[in-house]
Nucleic acid binder design. Structure first.
Lengths: 417, 417
DNA sequence: ATTAATAGTTCAGCCGTTGAACTTAGACGT
DNA sequence: ACGTCTAAGTTCAACGGCTGAACTATTAAT
């Protein structure tokens, strides 16, 4: 929704600060003059804004030299690497991951702590999350970098307005008020932006957007990022901005009915995509894993075994992945007909399976997406691995700062000076 | 996308003008003082902005009296009924409709001209559209009301960036540059806002939003409006704003695959919703119409026959509509899992069938929408009939003016003064 | 008639942006 | 080595829009 608030002079500053910072982020090393030319702002304005951004340690000068040709050489500007960092946590089904990224998106610290979270109660896991976060905050302190905010990725429906986790089937959680719980527990060290909770698939999409630079994956700033794991989720990016849906529950493509009379899914419905193309079932169908679904997860190595067999040409594995590709194509055709986002990024474990998923997937998309008559649906493979969600959680903090730096500028200007 | 343009003082005016105008639109009869209190702007600012809006004839004073109690009585403000009007045209499969609405959304003139457009070539239909538009413009002139812009509703994929109609299966058209064609043909009488082409389902959703007041249907400003006719389309409204998708092709729920191995649809794919729950097929299955699909359309009265039989309790009709309701539920479950818009408005011919569609539809939604565990999906019936699309086309013109009046204010201030 | 209360206007002041003039700093040519 | 040229960045008066306080206008209540 458009903000229904009055606009004053400070609104201009805010808007233009964001504009300038975005220019710096989009083209590291730009000069003030180039920003002025690119944005349409006057040189004087850009200088004034840049000074403030430098004072807040969001932007840094790369040094006074940057030879171009004739005339006074320009002073390059970049996002400050000593500015506020984003701290990301992912509460996975069988691990806890953290990472720290700077304003440019570069990874500074990454930790992975295995351990089945389904075996523990929500409070147990939460106190572990708090310990892990405190450790990460300490680590940032020893590294000498300030933490701007914390992003928390969870595999479930997160209410955007409140930060409550409403439903996490794979964790077996319901109605956990993650946002305020973590905020109060960390009240003594709460970073400026606070704690933002979100869905892992949405964060993964954000990481993809970040990783692939300002142009986005495949040169697109609009894409569907599919996180294919045990459960299948999607994150949407429209015009370079995440689309969270009304309440934040968008992207649950794992529960699109692709075969209305098909097998029963864990959610109780019949023929959900999760049940027909989820990693667990692909592995069962391929015969690379014989665990019962939902009881214990296939270990990460099983994916490697599957890929190996696929490479060798194993018929059963190939058949299983082809079938999954077709079902995925049907679900994505539904999603694209609904949303009109003609680029698909295969992420998570699907990235590794892309060579074998691609053809059956594209075949379904070509016949079933109405707008494919007006231009093909592009399918690309994610550049990021399984750490996409954590990185996205951390990056979302940083993205929020870049999208609206002014609050941070005035807040940061006081203690800095 | 967020606009990457610099913000100056004029941007403030623009934003705040829209803010004030929206306040007037949302609560007809408000005083300047109430607007100031409601928006947070200073009284002086509101006065200044209102004066400009009155000068541009977007706002009118209702007369200097409006007794409240003690103190100086307030001067009520409303949207001007003599201000710019929106002219809407709908190119239906077997009719051409026009209408004229004022800033408040009230219908001033409405014409319906039957005639099968599939029998004619696109240029033939276009010249007829131009004649019809010229007639409507003359009529507006004799009524003494200015026309602010023209909205054109078409049953097909319209490229938002260019106004080109890329594909209209039910008309048999491909790649018709409606926008620029109409603009040049009407160049001598082109209204300020020009010509905007859009999908009929999107416009219908916009009409629904308008009709149901600032709160939206069912008190929601987020909903999926389903236009159920021969083809099934949907328009999405998120936060009170239409969601057009990346290229403007969103909402093609008629081609969601609901039964991957089902019957072949006109688009070539198998088991599309159109083929299983489109009006033509409901009528065939119900036995109220025996025309061959796609050859000639069932006349409008057939719907009345169907409704009559349903009311009488005819088993075959009820069975056919129940089946359609289930398929529709499956498709909408997919859409809602993707988009997270938990309110469905049944529009078009589906509005008349709502009593019989409702139960099977809701049953599917309850089991198949993952987030239904966090709150039920609401299903309501549209207040508007089949004229929703034309009205939406006209209303979209007016909505654009209200959303960004400033361009109109400065443009209108010159010739007015 | 006086007082109280509310609506709307006027005006000096503040703030951010702007464009022009100015300063800075290196490259090129002789 | 020196002056000239070019482009980057800064300074400053001016402009436009918002604001709060003071002021006027208009009605009800005492």
């Amino acid at each position: 929704m458009v903000e229904p608030s009055p606009a004053g002079q400070h609104t201009l500053r805010r808007h233009n600060s964001a504009l300038v910072l975005r220019a710096v982020a989009g083209e590291p090393g730009v000069s003030r003059a180039a920003i002025a030319a690119g944005t349409g702002l006057a040189k004087a304005t850009v200088s004034s804004l840049v000074d403030r951004l430098i004072a807040a340690d969001l932007v840094a000068e790369t040094g006074p030299v940057a030879r171009t040709g004739r005339g006074r050489p320009s002073t390059g500007l970049t996002l400050s690497t000593t500015g506020p960092h984003g701290l990301g946590v992912e509460i996975g089904v069988d691990y806890l991951a953290t990472c720290l990224v700077d304003l440019t998106g570069r990874l500074h610290a990454h930790r992975m702590r295995p351990g089945d979270n389904r075996a523990r109660s929500a409070p147990q896991v939460l106190s572990r999350v708090i310990r892990v976060l405190r450790a990460a905050l300490r680590e940032a302190e020893t590294l000498g970098v300030p933490v701007g905010g914390i992003g928390v990725a969870v595999p479930g429906l997160v209410e955007a307005s409140t930060g409550r986790l409403r439903l996490a089937p794979n964790l077996g959680w319901r109605d956990v008020d993650l946002g305020s719980h973590l905020s109060t527990a960390l009240a003594d060290r709460l970073p400026p932006t606070g704690v933002v909770v979100g869905n892992e698939a949405d964060f993964a999409a954000e990481a993809e957007l970040w990783q692939s630079g300002p142009a986005g994956p495949g040169g697109q700033r609009d894409f569907v990022h599919v996180s294919g794991e045990i459960g299948i989720g999607a994150g949407f990016v429209v015009g370079g901005v995440p689309f969270p849906g009304v309440r934040g529950f968008s992207g649950e493509i794992g529960h699109i009915p692709v075969d209305p009379n098909g097998p029963v899914c864990g959610c109780g419905a019949r023929g959900c995509l999760d049940r027909l193309a989820g990693l667990e079932w692909i592995m069962r169908d391929a015969g690379v894993w014989d665990g019962r679904p939902g009881v214990a997860r296939p270990p990460a190595e099983v994916l490697d075994v599957l890929v190996e067999r696929l490479t060798e040409g194993d018929t059963r594995s190939r058949w299983a992945v082809r079938a999954a590709g077709r079902w995925l194509g049907i679900a994505l055709a539904a999603a694209i007909n609904v949303l009109d986002i003609p680029t698909v990024v295969l992420g998570g474990s699907y990235a590794a399976l892309e060579p074998w998923l691609r053809d059956p997937l594209c075949a379904e998309l070509d016949t079933r997406v109405l707008s494919s008559a007006c231009g093909p649906v592009t399918v690309v493979r994610s550049a990021l691995g399984r750490e996409a969600a954590v990185r996205g959680a951390a990056a979302s903090v940083v993205r929020a700062i870049i999208a609206d730096p002014d609050a941070f500028v005035v807040a940061g200007a006081d203690p800095a000076g």
